[in-house]
Amino acid sequence: MKLSVIVTLKKEVLDPQGKVIQQTIGNMGIKNVSNIRQGKYFELEINEKNYEMAKSKAEDICKRLLANLVIEDFKIINN
């Protein structure tokens, strides 16, 4: 089973990379773009037939490895 994981910084945490990207978009002359946040995207191939089992495995991986829960949130997506 293939799952995707998106890890993003928590809303209240400053994202300097997102800020610089936003500034650059402004410098490129593109207007009305705000609140850019940069995150990470992962694809996981999990050998479980049952979605719930796969999801719980992915959750465990996220909590213990892919995300730092002090500053980051994660979202698991079923493809």
């Binding site: 300097p16 990379q17 610089v20 990207i21 650059t24 410098n27 490129m28 940069q38």
Partner: peptide, 16 residues
Amino acid sequence: SYGDYLRTGCIAAKSN
């Protein structure tokens, strides 16, 4: 440049 944000050289490539 720019701490290698996004991709190396990418932000600098859009500078003035």
